[in-house]
Design a protein around this nucleic acid. Structure first.
Length: 274
DNA sequence: ACCTAAACCTGGGCGC
DNA sequence: TGCGCCCAGGTTTAGG
């Protein structure tokens, strides 16, 4: 589901609405969706809401942290008041966190891949041996770093872009869009990229992610992603290749192709991407 | 270290 | 209407 721009959009909204709120109760409608004891977070106050890779990190006042992964179909919706006309809106409700001021955070998840976990705040970094690469917007994300990573593997560049241990936050939509922007074939072995191309690729990564955040993420075709305020994102209107197979390339007029890489749908223009 | 497929789930769309 | 298949923004695990 959500990749860096979508999670970032959700986190910014939640940070401005949840900080300072006190948790009064937690409703767990799907046990699989909540890992830990809800008693450990009841009565605590929300201190911080941040993003790391595609994870949402909510720090609480008692040294516990809520770690949330939305996976493919998770949604986090903030309701400032309890509403009764939820007919279809929160159809796949799995967990509800209620606050003392009657507002609530609702976790919807059609496919039940996502989760909310209660962990000790100190463990966030190396959570479950989770190895995450640098954030694209951090100062560690340099051309030199990418040269080092790419030089060590012949894997298709698209798979390396999506490898969370190498770079944090890029998923299938943005990997496709970034490679089109950079003019690189998705199946090009990472090792074969020259220094100039790597520099261009880094620029494309920052450019596309920045633009996607500006448009508040992508609510694509059969989208599950919506913002925490219930509205759709609009970056899907700016897709140049993703889900455009069979259509005309907006740059050269040729046909956008669809192939498979690592089991994932891969969209690209053979004329523009070498 | 690399690769692939399958698994975790539900639902929509398509061909027959 | 229905069946079977493929598809879906992600990660983890098992096996080669």
């Amino acid at each position: 589901m959500p990749e860096l721009p979508e999670v970032q959009t959700i986190v910014l909204y939640l940070a401005s609405h949840l900080v300072g709120k006190k948790i009064s109760s937690v409703e767990i409608l799907k046990p699989k969706s909540f890992v830990g004891k809800k008693e450990e977070i009841i009565g605590t106050v929300i201190k911080k809401v941040e993003r790391r890779a595609k994870l949402i990190v909510i720090s609480l006042s008692n040294n516990k942290t809520l770690l949330i992964h939305l996976k493919m179909s998770g949604q986090l919706i903030y309701e400032s008041r309890i509403t009764n006309n939820e007919l279809n809106k929160n159809k796949y409700k799995r967990v509800v966190i209620n606050f003392t001021d009657k507002s609530q955070l609702i976790f919807n998840d059609l496919r039940i891949f996502g989760w909310i976990k209660v962990i000790n705040s100190l463990k966030v970094q190396g959570f479950n041996g989770l190895k995450l690469g640098p954030e694209p917007f951090s100062k560690e994300f340099t051309v030199e770093y990418l040269q080092k990573v790419f030089s060590k593997t012949r894997r298709p560049i698209k798979l390396v872009l999506m490898d969370q241990e190498k770079i944090a936050g890029i998923g299938n939509i943005y990997a496709n869009e970034i490679l089109f922007d950079a003019g690189i074939r998705p199946d090009k072995p990472a090792q074969q990229l020259n220094n100039l191309t790597i520099k261009q690729l880094r620029n494309s990564i920052l450019k596309i992610l920045k633009k996607a955040i500006k448009y508040k993420g992508s609510s694509a075709a059969d989208e599950q992603y919506i913002q925490a305020n219930g509205e759709k994102g609009s970056y899907q209107k700016h897709f140049l290749v993703y889900q455009r197979d069979g259509e005309k390339c907006k740059r050269c007029g040729g046909e956008v192709k669809r192939t498979k890489l690592g089991g994932r749908g891969t969209f690209w223009c053979p004329k523009c991407q070498k």
